[in-house]
Nucleic acid binder design. Structure first.
Length: 502
RNA sequence: GGGCGCGUAGCUCAGGAGGUAGAGCAACGGCCUUUUAAGCCGUGGGUCGCAGGUUCGAAUCCUGCCGCGCUCACCA
């Protein structure tokens, strides 16, 4: 089953060895990439300088005693021309044993063909790695200036499971991950310039906290104790604020044992930053500036198009209180509505609320149902109910609210920030309340972290904190429809390989 | 977890009123020393996701399972 294709290539491998050629050599010195020879063609062809280039063979066009072929390297693709009388008998014999997918190196001068195509004339040919499994390279043509790809490697399951093929065959995929890298670099550049210290806090935690979510549990063998993969790094970063670091951030993975869909992967990346002596208003400014800085670094623009929708990141973003937002989008005056009316409104907007939840939970549910999907342009929703914000400081003028905001873009929650709760007695009461929720069966209620409280009891300065979902930010910047398009190896159910042989 | 859809050659896809499979590309053989979805001639390649059932006969109809996608619910 499909074995003959591999057997044929293994035979070629043996033939190559019989020629005295090592099919897996150790290195190859290169002088140029694909983009370079196009950019410097005039100088290269005038000087008859020989270039040394390497890449993966993706197309061959044979002409008897000569052949054209395209190689792909990290910067694009380039054409080579192999001619028997120029490359020599041995190189040409090797050439005839090569396959699409092999890595090869070439050396020779650069010239233009009759049709004007910049091409490397092969004087020296080196096999750098023989591929024994076929590479399903699609065909490409240029039609009317547009690149048209035929039979593109497109099966999503295969693309995600065999990302190496996706990357090798679909150049746009590489581009998305380059944007991801640029995004994270820009975040660091932005924060480092503002005096933030990058830190690393535990991923394996004896207690999980900092967010409302179900955790993954593992077990430490020697200590014989359960450990949790963090759902957030928030409580550790705030301990560092207690320690006097003043400005810290971490970019890292969180793990949440929840559903998987287009915007959720079990492990995902968060940027969290904390700044002493700041409040949530400062975080609003940082959030806007950070977004703009990153967008300009990554895309060179502060506007973008996401899945056909124009989005303008230019600050300032509208700041609307949650209650005002609900009133605006639903005509419900939350301040005057009874709990029963709120519950009815939730149901009307399709949110099925568990009976007898707290008023703040109802308000939040109503907000999520009737407002969230409408927040396409960047919007800061501010002043969340206490009930859904156990780590946020009470609002300076509204007793039932906290100083918390979330960033919404394209109807998605893109960030979350507070004036951090630093009153240890209040924090203890909030944890106690979470415990009663947990005892009533709310598996996502937060767990009391006594050591965190102890830290806070030693004194924590007023602090602003901000968390931003990295994956979703990259989705926006790269116009990626699914979180799986911005995570190199997204979570997939394991599937037994049907051809388990190598 | 629910609903809808999909799973056929290495890849991209046809077929599907039930009669044991086709194309293009890739591969293999032949011709070809400036092509570019190179071209021309020829050849090989499939337990039609898995397991049952109906039937003389199943890729096709039915059931279950597995995987993927979209979507709803929970969550970032």
């Amino acid at each position: 089953m499909g074995q003959t294709l591999i057997e044929q290539r293994v035979q070629k491998l043996a033939d190559i060895r019989d020629m005295g050629i090592a099919p897996y050599p150790y290195r190859f010195e290169t002088t140029h990439h694909s983009a370079d020879i196009a950019a410097r063609f005039d100088a290269l062809s005038a000087s008859e300088e020989q270039v040394r280039m390497a890449g993966r063979l993706i197309v061959t066009r044979g002409h008897g005693k000569a052949a054209f072929a395209d190689l792909r390297d990290a910067k694009g693709r380039f054409q080579i021309y192999v001619r028997l009388d120029i490359a020599g008998d041995e190189a040409f014999a090797l050439w005839q044993l090569l396959d699409i997918g092999d890595f090869i190196g070439v050396a020779g001068p650069v010239f233009k063909t009759r049709t004007g195509h910049i091409t490397v004339q092969v004087r020296e040919l080196a096999l750098l790695s023989k591929a024994i499994r076929p590479l399903p390279v699609p065909k490409e043509e240029i039609r009317g200036g547009e690149r048209v790809i035929h039979d593109q490697f497109s099966d999503k399951e295969l693309r995600y499971r065999r990302r190496y093929l996706d990357l090798a065959l679909n150049p746009d995929v590489q581009a998305a991950f380059r944007k991801r890298s640029a995004t994270v670099s820009a975040m660091r550049e932005f924060l480092d310039a503002r005096g933030f210290l990058e830190v690393e806090t535990p991923v394996l935690q004896p207690l999980y906290g900092g967010a409302s979510a179900r955790p993954f549990v593992t077990h430490h063998r020697v200590l014989d104790m359960p450990l949790y993969l963090r759902i957030s790094d928030e409580l550790y970063l705030k301990r560092l604020i207690v320690g006097g670091l003043e400005r810290v951030y971490e970019i890292g993975k969180n793990f949440r044992n929840e559903g998987i869909d287009r915007t959720h992967n079990p492990e995902f990346s968060m940027l969290e930053l904390y700044q002493a002596y700041a409040d949530y208003s400062d975080m609003m400014t940082i959030a806007e500036e950070l977004y703009v800085f990153v967008a300009e670094k990554v895309n060179g623009a502060t506007t973008l198009e996401y899945q056909g929708q124009k989005i303008d990141l230019t600050p300032p973003w509208p700041r609307i209180s949650m209650l005002d937002a609900i009133e605006k989008y639903s005509d419900i005056d939350v301040a005057r509505a009874s709990d029963a009316e709120l519950e009815a409104a939730c149901k009307r907007f399709g949110s099925d609320i568990k009976p007898s939840v707290e008023r703040g939970v109802l308000i939040n549910a109503l907000f999520e149902a009737c407002v969230e999907p409408k927040l396409i342009q960047p919007t800061l929703i501010i002043d969340y109910p206490r009930a859904v914000s156990p780590l946020a400081k009470g609002h300076r003028s509204e007793a039932t609210l906290t100083e918390r905001f979330e960033i919404f873009i394209h109807g998605w929650e893109m960030g979350n920030a507070f004036s951090e709760l630093n009153d240890p007695l209040d924090q203890r009461r909030r944890f106690a309340h979470q415990k009663t929720l947990r005892d009533r069966g709310d598996e996502e209620a937060q767990v009391l972290d006594e050591d965190y409280l102890r830290a806070m009891e030693h004194g924590m300065p007023p602090t602003g904190g901000l968390g931003i979902g990295v994956d979703r930010m990259v989705m926006l910047l790269a116009n990626a429809p699914s979180i799986r398009d911005v995570i190199l190896f997204p979570h997939m159910r394991p599937q037994e390989s049907r051809d388990a042989d190598g």
